[in-house]
């Protein structure tokens, strides 16, 4: 299994103009991620309600919102893990809503996704987890580290070095601490050689110290590799520190969209408004202590 096993990347096409059928719409070509009237319904809950968003290349976007406001659903619909009920989503030139499974796979290869729960396969070693990031580039199912070509193994070790875990390459993934596991997940995302990085509350299950470290690492690497980043977060202050732009979701609607310095108390309370004060129709979602304090 060598270079021949690799499928071509969409890379070149990602900034190409839209197909003729897009002619009438207001799709812009520079945006890496773009969605129009995006809605997602789960049974009776409306998780996303007509979201319009365009994220230009290189932007670092933080998505804020209470628990249940639709952050995960939004991020997941950007790489097709969630199929929208209505609206259109275009990511890296690929129309996610109408893409077939082949196109979706090609898209996902270029989009790193960091999960709150890491998503590592616990029983296999760290290196094999990182190598899983290359699955989109190789043919056939793989069993064990040795089933990947040496070139890829070397590359994986390189990514592990970047996240500072090369010495743990052959340790079982479930023997690592939470912070280490998330760094392995970052290495796996790097293995995809992504253009876009989606991170869904990447540090929500970590303690404050390791969350700062993991966040720092993720953003430093993204800057170095010039990635577009969309991360959902609960910590407003943390988001203000690195993001170029913050958007706030509430009940599936975008209720705030601002630069970090424009994100004032009033806009924040729009996002985190306490239930007692607001006129909500949905069931109340509990805010954590931090956001409640901010909103109050």
């Amino acid at each position: 299994m060598g270079h021949s096993g690799e499928t071509p990347r969409l890379g070149a096409a990602r900034l190409s103009p839209g197909t003729p059928e897009d002619a009438g719409s207001r799709w812009t070509t520079e945006a890496v991620v773009q969605c129009e009237r995006l809605s997602k319904r789960f049974g009776s809950t409306l998780a996303l309600d007509s979201v319009d968003l365009a994220v230009p290349a290189g932007q670092m976007l933080a998505v804020l919102g209470l628990s249940g406001s639709g952050k995960s659903t939004l991020l997941r619909s950007f790489n097709g893990l969630v199929t929208p009920s209505e609206g259109r989503v275009k990511v890296l030139g690929c129309e996610v809503t109408s893409a077939n499974s082949e196109h979706l796979r090609t898209l996902r290869r270029q989009v790193g996704f960091i999960f709150q729960q890491f998503g590592l396969v616990g029983r296999i070693c760290v290196l094999e987890n990182v190598l899983a990031g290359a699955l989109g580039r190789v043919k056939y199912p793989r069993f064990g580290v040795l089933s990947y070509p040496r070139r890829l193994r070397l590359e994986a070790i390189g990514h592990l070095e970047r996240v500072g875990l090369a010495d743990r390459a052959f340790q079982r993934a479930d023997t690592l601490s939470g912070g280490q596991q998330q760094r392995v997940a970052i290495a796996r995302a790097l293995m995809q050689r992504p253009v876009l990085l989606l991170a869904d509350e990447p540090v929500a299950s970590l303690d404050p110290e390791s969350s700062a470290a993991v966040m720092e690492l993720m953003l430093r690497i993204s800057r170095e590799d010039n990635l577009t980043v969309i991360a959902s977060l609960h910590q407003v202050e943390l988001a203000r520190g690195w993001a170029d732009r913050l958007i706030g979701l509430r009940d599936g609607r975008v209720v705030a969209d601002a630069k970090p310095d424009e994100m004032n108390e009033q806009r924040l309370s729009e996002i985190y408004r306490r239930v007692a004060e607001g006129k909500m129709d949905g069931p109340p979602a509990p805010a954590n202590a931090f956001t409640t304090a901010l909103a109050g």
Binding site: L81, R105, G119, G136, P141, A189, M191, Q192
Partner: peptide, 26 residues
């Protein structure tokens, strides 16, 4: 979780099974 994460890397259906499911059930 792990299977979904493998899926998000652009793996095919069978790769998802062999990398995400099989090691967990073996």
């Amino acid at each position: 979780g792990p299977t979904e994460a493998v899926k998000s890397t652009g793996a095919t259906r069978w790769q998802q099974v062999t990398t995400g499911v099989v090691p967990q059930v073996l």
